[in-house]
Design a binder for these strands. Sequence first.
DNA 1: GCTTAGGATTGG
Length: 777
Amino acid sequence: MPVQLLKIIKGKSETSLPSHLQKEDLQHLQEGLDHTNKYFQGIVILFYPLTKLGDGTDFFKIVLQDLDNLCSRINSINILIYGKMAQDCAKVIRRGDTIVVAGFELAKSPTAREDGRHGCHLELSEEAGSIIYVRGLLFPNFIMPFQSVAPKYVYTPLNHLKDGTVVNLYGVVKFFKPPYVSKGTDYCSVVTLVDPSNVKLTCTLFNGNLDALPKIYKVGDIVRFHRIKIREYNGQMQGITSAGFAALTFDGTVGAPVVPRTSSKVYTFMDEEQKTIEELRVWAASNLSISGPAAKLSGVQPMLFFDLTCQLVGKAKVDGSSFLLKVWDGTKCPYPTWKVPVEARDLEGEKVLLHQLRNLTVDILVYDNHVQLAKSLKIGSFLRIYSIHTKQSNADAEVVSPIEFHLHGGTCYGRGIGVLPESNPDVKELKAFLESVDLADSQDMESMSSVELDGTFNNVTDLESHLQRCQQLSVTVLTDHQDLNNTELKTILNSTAPQQYRIRAKLRTYKPQKLHQSIKLHCSKCNSLQEVPDGDDFDFVLQGSAITAPNTELHNTSWYDSVMWTTQDQKQRKIAIHFVKHDEMLQQPEDTLLMIEGGTLKEVWKLTKRFKCVIPVRSTEDDLELLDLSAPFLLQGNIKYYGCKRCSTPKPIKSLSSIAAEQRPSWEPTEIAQALGIELLQYVFIMKFTLVDGTGALNAYLFDHEKFFQIPASEIFTNNFLQQKMQMTMNTLCPPGRKLDDLPWLECFIKSYNVRDAVKHQVYYQIFDTTVAEDVV
DNA sequence: GCTTAGGATTGG
């Protein structure tokens, strides 16, 4: 066989051994020590003729002397070479050559006593993955490079595999089952590969050592298998581990560093291999459908399967056939999640952390064959759990049951658990994210920060079943005009306004991407839109009003009872609360409207929790009056009601007494607004949808109170769950990171209208009579 | 001691 140079850089030979190999001294070659990634270097002082063993195996023996230990009593060692490697070596190795051996097996030398050499000998063979490098073949000096006697590997394309052969091959991972405990004695991993020949090969890999199996973390990874046996099974070629099987795994991302993941066995890896990996990456990028962004807990939905990259926070035994894993990924699941009851003493993990993360961790119950592996997992380790099943027992019931996370028994669809090393890029990203999570924030359901909303939902889960449904049906439905035919966007763009159309299109993109920015306040009288004031604005108005002390002459009238007190703090603030009566009686707090003077933001907010309506007021000489309309004039439940500054003409508070006198005052915001001379502002969603249908693209505005999303715009700000629901809806209508082909269809009703001003005339489009399909929300 | 699994979800 031709002897090859180990490495050639810029046309020049260089002395070079793989950098992962470290030199080992003769005296350290001992049984029980780990010689992985070690090499031994010596000079050939003796070699024997090539012979055959009883079973026909070629055999070649050489003796190496350790030049660094010439003074030692024992300074030489026997090297036994088997098989094809014996033949190759016999052709090139001569006395005086400097040799490096790696990937050897070490065994007791039966001849040590007679020959006076090292007590062990080294055994090398191609099957064991051994490598021999020879230095100075032609010029025995240290300027010449080492030359490799390692076999020149030939890689078989997947369409040229033959039954009964042992081959080397490259492939892109199309499917895999992470290593799991088989029913026999070994770990098993099933891997399906494809290559540019477009032929698939499913390999069944066994090994008692978990590390010997390929370290595949995701579809799209690239593997190099050495010495895999090919067999025919059910009319198809199948790969199966044979003696000396070795695997390297690479990240399949174009442009990522080409660093093999391996169980640190000795391996050859040269420029040529690097090129192969890069070529396969490029091929895979355009020929293999690799799923989009990974699922996050914030993106889970009931009744789906997904892979989760997460950190293990706690674990506990449950019973013989199931085991509990408590994990987090820094995002919050939008649904209530189930908690598996376990004995406190069975729960492993840091108590403080478990408590801190209680609202962010989810309980995953793993079953049967996964239990053994789950038990062995270390707290704090990073996992990828494949094909978790989310289940909701009675989703239709009045009381929504929590989402359950199951890792069912068996290994269908690659179901299983993989431990990711800290060096994994996904783990690095996750770690950075986990460190950035503000724990205080996640504890309070009502303080859903916009950062969380923006950040975590972009990675929505990419689940096939959902996608399929979206591709077949429309994700939106019409609430009227079903008899109308669809019109192509191109036709609409070429027509004059105003008109109405039914369309079928895809949502290419939308604005604003930060959904909370889509909420505005709308005045139906003057048609103006304004931003929703934030808490600081309200606080400012309240502080301003607190300067005026309550006028006690206005206390305790025929239609309200008043209480007043002074705060104990330095400010000595005076607070008055007026409880509106009905039939001269105070009502239950949940039916009561009250007015407050001199309260703070926090106090007002607290009162809204207990009482039906809260109206912040201040005293004048002869009546109570509303505050500035920058502040809400009414708070009911979680909703702040605002009035239009332009269209309102506030009336004295006593105008409310007429409602109080009603038989059953309902305290409807519209009614209160009317009584107080307030033009009520409506909460609306305003969004711009860019719709495409293959014939053209147009921007259509969505102007919606509640109908489209089936979520009241007024409640979005204060309802964490609704925010998430809306985000999920948008993720379904326009899944992030998808190609156009994979976007779902929307059935919409739109109307065109003209907007003219002095300089220009423009046609606008607005969506109406359309709602998100029932199974999408 | 020479098998194990051989891709194709849903139970607890």
